[in-house]
Design a protein around this nucleic acid. Structure first.
Lengths: 216, 216, 216, 216
DNA sequence: CATGAATGAGCCTTCATTCAT
DNA sequence: AATGAATGAAGGCTCATTCAT
């Protein structure tokens, strides 16, 4: 039940697009530096240096600095995130959980590990989202569509069994992801602090299942 | 039960620091532009133009462009957020709610209105937090301390009455604010979308109280 | 046989010119800072701060920054240096030396002490001379005229007594001052190194009297 | 017995460092302008214009304006002056003079011609020395070491023959160069005045040999 | 294809100088 | 007379981008 991390997917993605080795290094260098120092604070010379190429080469294929950013962002939106979502759904259907509790625990844990494993990559993505809302809009739409189809059938079962509240699937997802996001973003940004994924999963799931109502 | 919005507090804060009218306009222009285009994409000449002053004037008081940013950020962290938190606590103690449900509804609604009223200001703050984690760290610490003292006594009552789960106060706050943050941030960033505060409050509170457990 | 140092003369000179106390402080501050950091690297704000006045005050009397420099340089050329030369001549005539050796020793020693005592002031003067040759030209002319008259009669005696070579007075002065200048300038500029005036005087005079010809 | 002038050596030096033609023009333009108007009064745009390049080009290789100054000063200290000193010593050893008089006459004449031929270059060097004493310190040290070795043996002969006073070599050099410096500096700075090298050499040497003692 | 020298617009910042109070 | 806020020209420097080799 291992998942592929963003970097590997990213590398695969690049290979696919028939890029010369140098151009691939340019793209990798950009990813690294944008994540490390932010887009505006990274110069094309920095990229050239880290990639071990000349200044001109940086522009040969990607035309502009923004082209470089798009080349990084596009696969995130169009390939990586969807593919990760897909992979997630497939896994779920292959080994279904009897009760919603187990399902939720797995889902939360999986997404948390995923986010923790790819903190730097997520950070640059978040930075760009904050600056350019359109990224978030399109991402939300794509993921929304993808999940809706796959999750609806899954949730129907749990609802029938009386294990899950009878809300619209997207509302449930919004709540769950809202809690996760609210939990993770601070951690991704203040990247020095680690995060005990197991313990956090317990806390989050306990809350997600029963809210703030007193137990027993 | 009205609350002062950020802009008003901000203006007060500036007046206190005995700033010339032009300097105040410089600060306001910076706030506007940083929020609109981000810090790096705003030039000091832009600021001067919008403020209707010469470029030299921008530097007369604030010394550097970063000084300008700090002048905007500092009051947020040191004055406005704490003051808002204070104001919030005072209001709560003055007119206590008999049940936790009402309290929660008020609290969520209040913070949501507050955030919606000050979207542009919040946006620049979020942008900076994403870039400079230390801002988030210090803010978290300050607000944490402030709330802990004030909220503990309040929660104790509700817990005694059997209306609130017996968790550590900070865990409860983390959950509630996590849900709110997860809900609001996308909205603040994609600022074209409005947000029905009343409806959202209902949704959020229903979830917060009972989690995903089926309503019987 | 004490001589007044430049600073005192300078202060006197300023008092004479009916300057308000603040303006006097401005001038003093300029002298200090120009000597310390050079003219171009001293800002009018620096001067205002050190003088304890406002920026506007710096320009009230002296009109421009260059006006300030001229106010410092003019008295050097027109008053201080000539007055020092005068004082020097007077002293010489009051207590004449029987032989040229003694006279030379006194003269060299006196000028050396003088220069050592006023290193900072000399430094700014030298810096300006290097930049603006006209200063040097006019200074050379004025001092030349002054000395010629006074020294001629003095030298005539020594020449008659067979103690001094029968050259034109100015050639003698040029040689003596050349050696002194060649000796002092490096020391004034590299101001950390002190300089043993007595020992140097011995060395210089021994050389001045007999050149490089072997002794005995 | 011709000597290479500074400009030629300078050009050679630049060629050695594999500099593009434009960069070489930048350096030459800097030399010209720094000498003409002083470092602080020369703008990088001035340099770009005179060199016939864009302003960016000025910084491409030399990084900062100070880098440009260092690129001019460094070869003076590390290459040109030492090389000139070397060349001087070699010439001396190749064709030794029978008497110290002839030697001195040649030496003085040679250095004077050298200085007169390169007045502008010397001027900027002097200006910088006056501002930054460390330049003078290091130069003094380097030249001192170089000369000491080479001149000692030469002087020993003349001393034995009874043609030269038995002083420490460095003291002799200090005196000779002191006189030359005292003579030349005013002339270099007030560059409009020419200078009759032959006549001056006669004057200086006569004085150097016998000092101010009357000629019988 | 790759290189890297060259470009020039634009940025942040400094500073002498002015002027209303 | 003194103040200090305001000015705006100019400066050093960066950087995305182009192009001849």
């Amino acid at each position: 039940m291992k998942h592929t991390d963003v970097e590997t997917l990213f590398a695969n993605n690049i290979k696919t697009t028939s890029l010369s080795p140098k151009q691939r290094k340019v793209l990798q260098a950009s990813l690294t530096l944008f994540a490390q120092k932010g887009y505006e604070n990274t110069s094309t010379l920095d990229i050239a240096h880290l990639a071990g190429v000349s200044e001109g080469t940086v522009f040969k294929h990607f035309k502009t600095k923004d082209g470089l950013l798009q080349a990084i962002l596009k696969p995130f939106i169009h390939d990586i995130f969807p593919r990760v979502a897909d992979e997630f759904l497939i896994t779920l259907h292959q080994s279904p959980f009897d009760d919603f509790d187990s399902f939720l625990r797995y889902a939360v844990h999986d997404r948390m590990v995923y986010a923790m494993d790819n903190r730097p990559e997520m950070k640059i993505f978040i930075q760009q989202m904050v600056k350019d809302p359109s990224i978030m809009t399109s991402l939300t739409k794509r993921l929304g569509k993808l999940l809706q189809g796959g999750v609806d059938t899954l949730f129907r079962d749990y609802k029938k069994k009386g294990q899950l509240v009878d809300w619209d699937s997207m509302r449930i997802i919004r709540m769950v992801s809202g809690v996760i996001v609210g939990y993770l973003i601070p951690n991704i940004i203040m990247s020095d602090t680690p995060l005990d994924v197991d313990k956090t999963t317990d806390e989050v799931c306990e809350f997600l299942m029963d809210g703030l109502r007193p137990r027993n």
